[in-house]
Simulated scan of single mutants.
Amino acid sequence: MKIIEWKLIQGNEKISKEPLKLLFSGSQTDFAYIKKLVYKDKCDVVMNGKMPASLFLFIARRNYYNCDLLFFQYKRNSCIDVKSSEYCVPLWVGSTVSLPLVAKNNSSKSDIRLIRKNNLEYRIVDFSESVDDFYYNYWIPTIKIRYPEKNVYRERDTWNKYRCELLVVSDGTSDIAGALIRYDENHPYLWRNGLRYGNMSFCCKGAMAATYYFVSEYLYLKGYKSLYLGLSRAFLSDGVFQYKRKWGGVLKSVNNYAYILRVYCDSRGVKSFLINNSFISIYKGEFVSTLFYDCCNNYNRDDYLYGGVGGVRFIDINNKML
């Protein structure tokens, strides 16, 4: 019987500043992500504990702790069922792009202009000789800035288990970014990328965009027709999700874990969170964009029909929410 950890958090919702009480069960990394998504500043863990997953879910669904929202992390191939009043939100969704990479929107076109303006170029370096430099001086500093709660020191040994190539981006004077390309059964994957010393000012030169653009160019010249861009969060406001989308990323995979999202009440804090945090959910076996709206919102359905998404599910925040 699986024992899970859970937390009861109380604070003010990020946008509305209204009180919101959240019941959460999942990993520490995912707790940090959800906490940042829901709350702006200070929030308090007012209760926590451990119990069998089945017992926790039994208690949670009856709202024993008088909460506003539930996020429950579970394995999708387990015996846990998602109720009709709940939402299945993948922890991560995977994106794939077709090659050659084609800039189809103003943002990606602007990135390519920036790359060319700064005369950025790339080269493939010897993996065995350069991988530690990339790991310690590119990837770790960048990740620690973006995700300070992430434990980055465990995975170096796993890099040697895969067939990889290392691409380095230069501005003509010095190296400023790098990308680790992994090959899974001959399918390329832009696995890791980072800025030298975590220097975010290199983004102004187009360095991070160049890792996507040059990896795609390099692989296309080698004869590949697609590139896996990896995982991103399933919330549509997520910066990584939007970044991969602008390059034409199509949702083609999901990892084995998801959240059960359950809404207990229609408080102002809950409404604000749901309206401002649309997400990809799994509904009737396919990806759908899930949007909560009220009379003040004006959504264009086409803006949420991403590649790989089967439809858009609009939910009136004032009707049929619970």
Rank of each mutant, 00 (worst) to 15 (best):
L120Q: 07
Y122L: 01
K83E: 13
I143N: 00
V168G: 01
V250R: 13
G285M: 03
N118E: 02
V152E: 11
F292S: 03
G285F: 02
K14S: 11
A53N: 09
I115D: 09
N199P: 01
L20V: 15
G249T: 10
G311S: 13
M47Y: 13
F314M: 15
N118G: 05
K40H: 10
A207H: 08
F202A: 12
N318L: 08
K50F: 12
P141F: 08
T142H: 11
Y213L: 04
S237H: 04
Y162A: 10
F72R: 10
W191L: 12
I15K: 14
L190Y: 08
S110N: 15
A177G: 07
E149K: 04
I124E: 06
D171T: 01
N63F: 07
Y259F: 15
L55S: 13
K50G: 03
E149N: 10
A177S: 11
W159L: 15
V89F: 13
Y264L: 00
Q10M: 10
S232C: 14
N106I: 07
F72V: 09
F287H: 11
G285R: 03
L37Y: 03
N277D: 04
Y257L: 06
A53H: 08
Y122I: 01
D68K: 04
S84I: 11
L69G: 11
C265N: 15
W247F: 15
E149H: 14
W92I: 08
K50E: 14
Y306A: 09
Y147L: 11
D111M: 09
L274D: 06
S54H: 12
C164A: 05
G308L: 04
R76P: 07
T211G: 05
Y220V: 00
I145Q: 13
P148D: 10
S237A: 10
N319D: 15
W247K: 05
I143H: 00
E286M: 02
T211F: 05
K161L: 14
Y293S: 01
M1N: 02
Y189A: 00
L20R: 03
Y264R: 00
Y257F: 13
Y136R: 15
S174V: 06
S281C: 13
I280S: 04
L37I: 05
Y224I: 07
N151G: 01
S216P: 06
M1W: 00
A177D: 01
N319H: 13
T142S: 15
I275F: 02
L101T: 06
C43M: 07
A207Y: 08
V309L: 12
R156Y: 15
P188Q: 03
Y220W: 12
S237Y: 02
Y153A: 01
G269R: 07
L99T: 00
N119H: 14
G269N: 06
F56I: 03
I176F: 02
F24L: 09
K7A: 08
A258Y: 07
D303M: 03
K205P: 01
R192V: 02
D294N: 15
K205W: 02
N319K: 15
R233Q: 10
L167F: 00
Y122H: 08
N63C: 05
E286R: 09
L91K: 08
K150A: 12
G11L: 11
V168S: 02
Y197H: 13
L167P: 02
K75P: 00
